[in-house]
């Protein structure tokens, strides 16, 4: 009986109608990247597993697609070892290579491997597929494209400003109206510092995010239930209620974070970029 043709779960065929649209997206992004001086690179679909393992956390390691060694891979591992080892341990003996999981880690590997030839700052862009052994769901695929641009070897905030301009230009060309949300890790660190709850910063941002939905009282209640003290929640009030223009928000943050050097640095950085 003839086999029914199919493709692996979580992968897609793109017909010519879809490809015309996808190429329009990729070429628009590519054109704008090039306009800002980014240079295109490509890296292989497969990397050595040692490059990929341990870079995406424990969960990420499980989602790597591994490539079975060619030849007599089975004899490389004594059968006696089969029972004593976990699947992950055996996989690392049977597989030396894996499919790229994102474009960032291969790029980091590329920069280090080619550091003698590269002039810093190095601005590269890369548009290639990545593979993740995720459970396929609506809108989540096992093979999909990423379109990344990165600048390495420069601390200047002008890079951030230019990335905002790229975002603005790309979506203007598409005709999509967008809002660019910006934050700074240093501000979050600063908030944790001033209230003395470094491990609570994720809970705090999650709670603030629910302000529109739950209202101020419920957000405060959630924070108290999450283990913050009355005094800590009190200190957070200007942050939870943060409103107004960016300038007004930054002025509030500057006052709240007055005691945190790192927090103020975050405010300055945002001030420069917006």
């Amino acid at each position: 009986m003839a086999q029914k043709p199919s493709i692996p779960k979580g992968t897609r065929d793109f017909g010519f109608v879809e490809m015309a649209k996808r190429n329009y997206i990729f070429s628009t992004i590519r054109d704008v990247y090039a306009l800002y001086g980014f240079r295109q690179i490509e890296t292989p679909a497969m990397e050595n597993l040692s490059t990929l393992m341990g870079k995406y956390g424990e969960e990420g390691d499980k989602l790597l697609f591994k490539i079975l060694n060619s030849g007599d891979f089975k004899n490389a591992v004594p059968t006696a070892d089969y029972d004593e080892r976990t699947a992950a341990q055996l996989a690392s003996r049977f597989c030396e290579k894996g499919l790229r999981y994102d474009l960032t880690v291969p790029f980091a590997r590329y920069v280090v491997q080619h550091r003698e030839e590269l002039q810093m700052p190095f601005k590269r862009y890369q548009i290639q597929p990545v593979w993740r052994a995720d459970r396929p769901q609506k809108g989540r695929y096992r093979e999909f494209y990423q379109c990344d641009a990165d600048v390495v070897g420069s601390d200047s905030l002008l890079n951030e400003v230019e990335l905002m301009q790229i975002v603005d230009e790309v979506f203007s060309r598409f005709g999509i109206r967008v809002c660019i949300k910006i934050n700074n890790r240093k501000i979050l660190t600063g908030i944790a510092e001033i209230i003395g709850a470094a491990n609570k910063i994720v809970d705090i941002t999650v709670a603030i995010d629910k302000l529109d939905k739950l209202g101020l009282d419920n957000v405060n209640k959630e924070l108290l239930e999450g283990g913050l003290s009355e005094a800590q929640v009190e200190k957070l009030q200007p942050i939870i209620n943060l409103q107004g223009t960016n300038a007004e928000k930054l002025a509030t943050m500057r006052a709240v974070l007055a005691e945190s050097e790192v927090g103020l640095k975050g405010v300055d950085e945002i001030d420069f970029v917006v």
Partner: peptide, 27 residues
């Protein structure tokens, strides 16, 4: 810019990975 940039303290993507500015774009 033609689009608005908005400071949003709830934005906390990849907390362990990023060290400075973080951005996200919403349609």
């Amino acid at each position: 810019l033609r689009n608005e940039i908005e400071l949003d303290l709830t934005l906390a993507r990849g907390l362990n990975y990023y060290t400075g500015c973080i951005f996200e774009v919403k349609a």
